[in-house]
């Protein structure tokens, strides 16, 4: 399986994603330059974290106009898997490949810490290697991660099982104490209606080895390996 990791000016988790999928997972990967129009035959497109275009104007607002985003949208339309992590999630929302928006954290500060997530739907191409309801640990590092949408959208997401990861507290409950950034309904990650586009604020690629304090993110990439290769 081949991953395509998009490099925008200001992406800074591109190398980390590459390391996770190539060195740890053992898959193939190529970097895709944002000015390119060719996805080079990749199976999965990954929009990495960082500050594409400096997050000027609004996180993801300029990156969505990069030439490569036309190809990413077409790939998603064809049912091809797309993952957006952190800044990548913000770009996917700006590009309308996912609903909702990511606003400034409730506390107005950038937050970098390990969080707990509950796997709300273990039956997606991104999560099938997790146990349903599993509590996993991954780092977050963002200033604008407060997931926000109108009630109708939120209800639809919930109803269709598209809320994939939810922030939870030390005992696994999605309450305010477990919500680092004020996201509505503690939402940390969602998928598109067709289930092939995933956006999440936490960094699974930073949680793939014990030396980094958690390997809980690895199953996300393994899930794709199992599904996409099958």
């Amino acid at each position: 399986m081949k991953f395509g990791i998009v490099v925008f000016p200001g992406s800074n988790c591109d190398e980390d994603a590459y390391h996770a999928v190539v060195d740890v997972l053992g898959a193939e990967a190529v970097y895709l330059w944002h000015k390119a129009h060719d996805l080079e035959g990749v199976d999965v497109v990954l929009l990495p974290g960082g500050f594409a275009y400096g997050d000027y104007l609004r996180a993801g607002a300029i990156a969505r106009f990069s030439p490569i985003m036309q190809e990413v949208a077409a790939h998603a339309q064809r049912g091809g898997p797309v993952i957006g992590i952190c800044n990548g999630f913000q770009i996917l929302c700006e590009a309308k490949l996912l609903p909702g928006a990511l606003l400034r954290n409730a506390g107005l500060q950038y937050i970098s810490e390990m969080v707990r997530l509950r796997v709300e739907n273990a039956d997606t191409m991104f999560t099938n290697r997790y146990e349903p309801g599993a509590i996993v640990r991954m780092p977050i590092a963002h200033g604008e991660g407060r997931y926000t949408a109108d009630t109708e959208t939120l209800d639809r997401l919930e109803g269709e099982g598209r809320v994939v990861f939810r922030y939870v507290n030390a005992v696994g409950e999605p309450d305010a104490s477990g919500n680092p950034n004020g996201s509505m309904r503690n939402i940390a990650g969602i998928v598109s209606a067709e289930g092939n586009v995933l956006g999440l604020m936490p960094h699974p690629e930073r949680a793939v080895e014990d030396v980094l304090g958690s390997h809980d993110g690895l199953a996300l990439f393994q899930s794709m390996l199992a599904r996409v290769s099958a």
Binding site: C13, Y110, A141
Partner: peptide, 28 residues
């Protein structure tokens, strides 16, 4: 203080702030 700093980008940080007397960065 350090909650406002990205401490884990570059996936090298083996000992984070608050965990040890110094920071540790593993060399891939």
């Amino acid at each position: 203080v350090y909650r406002q700093y990205d401490t884990t980008v570059r996936t090298g940080t083996a000992v984070l702030p608050g965990e040890g007397d110094a920071a540790v960065i593993r060399l891939r």
